[in-house]
Amino acid sequence: MRARKIVRRNWLVHWRSRRSSLLLSVLTPVMFLSAMGLGLGSLVQERNAFGGVEYAAFFATGILAASCMQTGFFSATYPVMSKITWQRNYEALVASPLSVRDIFLGELSWMGIVLAQLAIPFLAVMTLFGFVHSFAAVLAIPVVILLGLACAAATFAFTATLQTDEPFTWMFRFIVTPLFLLSGTFFPIAELPSWAQVLAHLTPLFHGVELVRMLTLYDLEVTALWHLTYLLVLLAAGIMLGIRNLERRLLP
């Protein structure tokens, strides 16, 4: 696997520029969970709406999935655009024996590592807060990584077609933020009007959140397979389209 070499390069750059990132990735969930989860959670006494668990736990699982989605989206926007047009790292890479496929898969693998660096400390902190109700919760880590990667691959495919970075602002405002808010992150989608519920069912975050909650808070149900299939299909489609678009871009 030549893609490994890309991971190596990103690791070197990452390690140098963000040595503090591990600390940060522990502090972020601590702050989130104590401020929002516990603070807000103490006001929300209702339990039935959240499947019989305390609000803070419900919220924590939502934030874990939503952060991974957001990281997935983000890592395939400006950083990728920069390597295509501004710094043209990819141009240097395609002149070597690496193929566009190697480059795409290498970058995506690296994004997976970044997601793992986010998800693992987050879940550890959640466990310390007592928000994890099952050993199956460990599986939430690959699930949120899958969620993040599915979003990253799809975004990468989009970024590869762009001439300017303008659409990113638009994308964050009208796609990522609504997804963040309306996919059952902060409250169950049953509270939404029915048309919005239908929309929510189409979003990757909804499926990611549902899976994470089944694994950490509730019991696993057969519908888990459907959620998993959705994410895997999105990832596969993102990879295929992404490699095709990047080839068109880098090998004009």
Binding site: K5, R8, R9, L12, V13, Q87, E91, A92, L93, L98
Partner: peptide
């Protein structure tokens, strides 16, 4: 199209790996 996040030597090392 050098890798501006790496040093002179690292640029060569990474490229050699590719």
């Amino acid at each position: 199209n050098l890798d501006i996040e790496l040093t002179v030597r690292e640029n060569l090392e990474m490229y050699a790996r590719y």
